[in-house]
């Protein structure tokens, strides 16, 4: 094996050039909480280690305005302004957990960040790293899927935006070319009648890998679920949207009956998906409780 070269990037352009120059031989390190273990166990033996933890362009959480072309009911196209929230790929879980952006309606995002590891891990680990590691149990991915987040990736030449769902290909695999870097995550900010909840079942209260995680985005109107987006973690090869369960809730009045019916469906969906795998029986039953907690939290953040 060639001796390991380590670069610590100071600016984004410099890092993108290094990526370009050493294509296919580079392993990116940010917080290092996953990579260091893989290096130690020799599951990864890169020739070049590229440290991006000092790059300011990958830091920070901000709002910006995006123009959306929309076709109205009258068939006329119009441009609407949508406020977006952007999280740099190098933002740590501690920073997300503390951010004033993620209170009230969006508190589910802070809850998910706070459920990761321990304070030491949260101080080091980054949102970009959690996404690119693409673990089935990655805690931040379900909430971002429920928000229909976008991944913004860059190479030396250009910037590209794609849906996060499309970005995560498989367990441990993301849609990044060898010369590309995940730079940020963006999603629409929430309206007053929208909110996000997150619940996780681990084997203890801290330092617990998710056994089941559920993120629930809800839009409420006339005491009914106007729009629901659900995503699960650790319930398959990658965190995924739960479309069947969403459909079961949409348009229904908010009451114990509708929630219980959706929970029952979630159980069936999961038992079918995990059939033959260890823990299928347990996860199928337990997902009901985790789902209801995520939904209850989401509704609670709107005082419903």
């Amino acid at each position: 094996m060639a001796p390991l070269s380590v670069y610590r990037g100071a600016e984004l352009q410099q890092v993108l050039k290094l990526l370009q120059d050493h294509q296919g031989k580079v392993c990116i390190i940010a917080g290092g909480t996953d990579i260091i273990l893989k290096l130690r166990e020799k599951k990864l033996e890169p020739e070049v280690l590229l440290d991006i933890s000092g790059i300011n362009e990958l830091k920070g959480i901000s709002e910006y305005s995006k123009q959306l072309a929309d076709t109205g009911l009258d068939g006329l196209k119009r441009i609407t302004e949508q406020t977006m929230i952007k999280i740099g790929a190098g933002v740590t879980f501690s920073e997300i957990a503390k951010s004033p952006f993620f209170s009230q309606n969006l508190k589910g995002l802070a809850d998910a960040a706070l459920s990761v590891g321990s304070p030491q891990i949260r101080n080091a680990a980054t949102i970009g790293g959690n996404i690119c590691n693409a673990s089935p149990a990655a805690d931040i991915i379900p909430v971002l899927l429920a928000l229909e987040a976008e991944a913004i990736v860059r190479s030396r030449e250009k910037e590209e935006t794609m849906s996060l769902q499309g970005f995560i290909l498989d367990k441990g695999s993301v849609k990044l070319l060898p010369n590309q870097l995940l730079c940020s995550i963006a999603f629409s900010s929430l309206k007053e009648n929208q909110s996000l909840g997150f619940a996780k079942l681990g084997l203890r209260k801290a330092l617990a890998i998710s056994r089941i995680a559920v993120a629930a985005f809800v839009e409420v109107g006339d005491n009914a679920f106007k729009n629901v987006r659900l995503a699960s973690g650790a319930c398959g090869k990658i965190p995924k949207r739960e479309y069947e369960v969403e459909a079961c809730l949409e348009g229904k009045a908010i009451n114990d009956g509708s929630i219980e019916a959706a929970a029952e469906l979630f159980k069936q969906v999961l038992k079918e998906r995990l059939r033959g795998r260890s823990g299928a029986e347990y996860k199928g039953e337990a997902v009901k409780g985790v789902f209801k907690e995520a939904l209850r939290k989401a509704l609670g953040y709107q005082n419903i």
């Binding site: 084997l203 203890r204 801290a206 617990a208």
Partner: peptide, 11 residues
């Protein structure tokens, strides 16, 4: 210790 679970201070 990732699979052999022992309590932490929070438990």
């Amino acid at each position: 210790f990732s699979s052999y679970i022992i309590p932490t201070a929070l438990d």
